[in-house]
């Protein structure tokens, strides 16, 4: 009861700091994600006429493809996009660093390594079915948390040079993880450990409801746990000492951001591999169209991330039908030039 009134109060405060134009942008973004969701559900190597299905006038095959294959895939891509978007925005806020993308700084790689290690080493331990479904994302979440905490400790020590060191650590962690995953995929005969391509480039293919449901649960909790920190993320931009004087419990905020972002990224990576640049591109686009305050930025990044990821997955399914491009290839194709542009922009005083 107490926590629910507290949440309600936090929500009211957050709403008060949204401008009218930002609210209208959020509504437009929500509409866009819904539109993307509908389109992506109906288009593919097998066309599903949504209208006919809603009217109950569809063939059995169409229904099966929709419910068992298409829908879980589109929902997963939306969730992963939303999770990576919010995680990117929150990490950028916490680190006060516009280049903090879960992929670039090695958080996704940590998660992938955690997941791959669990599949190879730990799958024998898995007993119950339910536990197994949760244990894989948890292993990934642990991997991601480890990397974020390490980054935080490292960049603290380096003060204002933190930006550079964060990216360098990211390069190192990415390299370590890709070597380890590479070895694991070649050594392992386990059919469960998917190909190297899956981990490094990502894919939403082949997802099923039993795996998807816990992921929906985990990612949504992470997102909703991050949203109320918006105002504190704004205030921390003044610097940690200043935020502390304004009554922000820095330690609590750090834990909240670090573990929620790790959870969102970890669960995403466990199910769909590493998909780069979404956490970088999405928050920046959201800032460009609507502003930098996190009350707006966090939900906008979630909605925009969902739309972008659904679209990227749709493209990956359509370009070389009936085969598929890895979805990470598409996000990287969009993201890497954007990253370069950002670096050039940062170089300006």
């Amino acid at each position: 009861m107490k926590s629910s009134t507290k949440l309600l109060r936090l929500w009211r405060i957050n709403k008060a700091f949204l401008s009218r134009s930002q609210i209208s942008i959020l509504i437009k973004l929500a509409t866009l994600s819904l539109f993307c969701l509908m389109v992506a559900t109906s288009i593919g190597s097998y066309e599903i006429p949504l209208l006919q299905i809603m009217l109950g006038d569809a063939q059995l095959l169409q229904q099966i493809v929709l419910i068992e294959i298409r829908l879980p895939r589109v929902i997963l891509s939306a969730l992963v996009g939303a999770g990576l978007g919010v995680a990117g925005a929150s990490l950028q806020g916490l680190f006060r660093n516009p280049l903090a993308d879960p992929g670039l700084i090695g958080v996704s790689a940590g998660a992938a390594l955690g997941a791959a290690l669990f599949i190879v080493v730990g799958s024998g331990v898995t007993t119950g079915f339910i536990a197994g479904v949760f244990l894989l994302p948890i292993a990934a979440i642990l991997g991601a948390s480890f990397v974020i905490i390490m980054l935080y400790l490292l960049t603290q020590g380096f003060g204002h040079q933190g930006v550079t060191y964060m990216l360098l650590v990211g390069i190192a962690v990415n390299a370590i993880a890709s070597v380890a995953i590479g070895i694991l995929t070649f050594v392992s005969t386990d059919a469960e450990l998917r190909g190297l391509m899956f981990w490094t480039m990502g894919s939403f293919g082949g997802v099923t409801w039993p795996v998807l449901l816990p992921a929906i649960f985990i990612i949504l909790i992470a997102i909703f746990y991050l949203l109320p920190s918006a105002r504190q993320l704004d205030i921390i931009q003044l610097g940690e000492p200043e935020a502390y004087r304004l009554g922000v419990n820095i330690k609590k905020l750090k834990y909240r951001i670090i573990f929620s972002s790790a959870t969102a990224v970890g669960a995403s990576v466990a199910l769909s591999g590493m998909i780069g640049f979404v956490g970088l591109v999405v928050p920046h686009l959201a800032r460009l169209i609507g502003g930098v305050n996190h009350n707006y930025l966090l939900p906008a990044s979630a909605l925009m991330g969902a739309s972008l990821m659904i679209t990227a997955d749709l493209i990956s399914r359509l370009v070389i039908q009936p085969a598929e491009l890895p979805v990470g290839l598409i996000t990287s194709a969009i993201g890497s030039p954007f990253f370069l542009w950002l670096i050039f922009r940062l170089r300006r005083p």
């Binding site: 109060r9 405060i13 704004d234 205030i235 304004l246």
Partner: peptide, 28 residues
């Protein structure tokens, strides 16, 4: 408290910076 400020990274408007002094408790 007003002391030396650290550089701010993102493009906050002046009004948004002033607003940060409006505490949750004051808001309530």
């Amino acid at each position: 408290v007003m002391s030396q400020i650290q550089p701010i990274v993102f493009d906050f408007s002046v009004k948004a910076i002033i607003q940060m002094g409006w505490l949750d408790r004051g808001y309530a």
